[in-house]
Design a protein around this nucleic acid. Sequence first.
DNA 1: CAAGTGTATTAAATGTCTTAATACACTAAT
DNA 2: ATTAGTGTATTAAGACATTTAATACACTTG
Lengths: 121, 121
Amino acid sequence: MIVLDYRDKRPLNEQVAEKLMNLIAQGGLAPGERLPSVRNLALDLSVNPNTVQRAYSSLEEKGYITTITGRGNYVSEESRWKDSLLGEVLSELRETAERVKAAGVGMEDALKCVKEVYERV
Amino acid sequence: MIVLDYRDKRPLNEQVAEKLMNLIAQGGLAPGERLPSVRNLALDLSVNPNTVQRAYSSLEEKGYITTITGRGNYVSEESRWKDSLLGEVLSELRETAERVKAAGVGMEDALKCVKEVYERV
DNA sequence: CAAGTGTATTAAATGTCTTAATACACTAAT
DNA sequence: ATTAGTGTATTAAGACATTTAATACACTTG
């Protein structure tokens, strides 16, 4: 389900959170679906439960999942996170585009680059 | 010349390097121009000389500046860094585009976003 | 020679991340 | 009620990166 990259310098809890978020955003985890328990996912990933819990906490804070004590963590309805995700991701794209532009890349090349990503399988 | 952001979680030496790199890429520091000495910039930024030196080292490694022991650090000719900067920046754009796509943003919207950045003054 | 330069080293302080070992409250099934 | 499984919280310890500090050395220029 998830594979951690130990060469990546980012904290494990962030990696876990991001990968789950991507899964949710792409529909790999449907709204209402239950996530693995903190302890189970920690076992799967060979990671400390605290690390998984931090990942889950940040996901709940951002609205991707809903936590029910004693039951588990469930994927939220799309309406809970869709808008903020779009906003976040588009502002990231703007920032990157600014940097690309500042580096002297022409608009045509930048657009072509984005297009290629979309047209790839 | 440079202002550090202590709310930013990234290391100071990376911030210094990035801000100088942006200045160079945008022509704020012309090729051949001399950079402040390690000690002087450290004083200006209220930062340890070691921190500035690390920033300068990474800039030299990437070809943005040329270091001459006993004399100082000088901005390299554009040809030294232009290509690698383009590559780096385009791969960053690809990564961001992947993320934008994964979040469910349509290609048209993504392209429009990039276009708007370029058409802005 | 003197001043200013880049460079290197060692030590200490700090902060974050991660693991580990518990403990507690809640929920569901029996 | 008991039990198993859940989320949550706490404390301690270690590993690691970042930064500061205090030096020292080699080089270049005037």
